[in-house]
Simulated assay, not measured.
Amino acid sequence: MLRLTCPYCGAAADETELTPGGEAHLTRHGPGSSDEAFEGYLFLRKNPYGVHFERWRHAHGCGKWFHAARDTRSLQVFGTYSAQVTRPPQDIIDRIAATHPGFDWEAGQ
């Protein structure tokens, strides 16, 4: 079972206490954007077999949204962090790189 720690209230919650929100760090496109950009925002998502950055909501806790970095192959969680940032904290990137040599956050985004 997937277990994540909410970075806001500190509670370790299993996935039944959380609501998934899909891929993290998306560029939002809405009214006024091109049809291609809006289509990409609505429908085109990564679904990697490996390192993935996701949005989660602590639904049965503090109710706040946060991001999690994890490996979809092994369910290894590299860390959780605020949803109000545009990139993962450096310590999480370093943890991923230690397990996945050659991992490059910039290349993956």
Rank of each mutant, 00 (worst) to 15 (best):
T72N: 11
A11Q: 06
R73Q: 15
G32N: 04
D104T: 03
P48K: 14
S74L: 10
S33P: 03
P31S: 14
Q76I: 09
W105T: 01
M1R: 13
T16F: 02
F43N: 12
R70N: 09
T80Y: 01
T19A: 08
L18P: 00
A11E: 10
F38N: 11
A59M: 11
E23Y: 03
L4N: 00
P88I: 07
R28E: 06
R87K: 14
C6S: 11
P48S: 08
T99M: 08
T72E: 10
G102V: 04
L75P: 11
V51T: 09
E15G: 02
G21K: 00
R55W: 06
R73T: 10
R28S: 04
F53Q: 02
R55L: 15
A13W: 02
A12F: 01
S82C: 15
H58R: 02
A107G: 07
V85A: 06
R57P: 01
W105Q: 05
E36M: 14
P89N: 14
A24H: 11
R70L: 13
D104V: 02
Q84I: 09
Q90D: 14
P48E: 13
A12M: 12
R57V: 09
V85P: 00
E36G: 05
Y81H: 12
Y41G: 05
D91Y: 07
S82L: 11
C6L: 07
F78W: 04
P89C: 10
N47E: 15
L18Q: 00
Y8Q: 03
W56Q: 01
R70I: 03
S82K: 12
Q90H: 13
H52P: 02
E17A: 06
E106K: 12
G22P: 05
R87W: 02
P89K: 08
K64E: 09
F66A: 02
H100V: 15
T19I: 10
E39V: 14
G102A: 05
D94F: 02
R3G: 00
E54A: 05
T16A: 15
E17R: 04
A107K: 12
L44Q: 13
R45T: 11
G50V: 07
T5D: 10
A107T: 12
T86P: 01
V85F: 06
D35T: 12
F43Y: 15
P89I: 14
H25C: 08
R55Q: 08
Q76W: 10
D104F: 08
G22F: 10
G40N: 15
G108E: 09
E15I: 01
F66D: 00
Y41S: 08
R55I: 08
E39N: 13
D14Y: 02
K64P: 00
H100K: 12
T72G: 04
S34D: 15
V77R: 00
Y81F: 15
R3I: 00
W56V: 00
R95I: 11
Q109I: 08
C62H: 00
R57Q: 09
K64T: 04
H100P: 01
V51S: 03
R87S: 05
G30E: 09
H67C: 07
H67Y: 13
F53L: 15
R87I: 06
D35N: 14
D14P: 02
G63W: 02
G50T: 15
G79E: 04
I92Y: 03
A69P: 03
P89A: 09
K46Y: 10
D71T: 11
H60S: 12
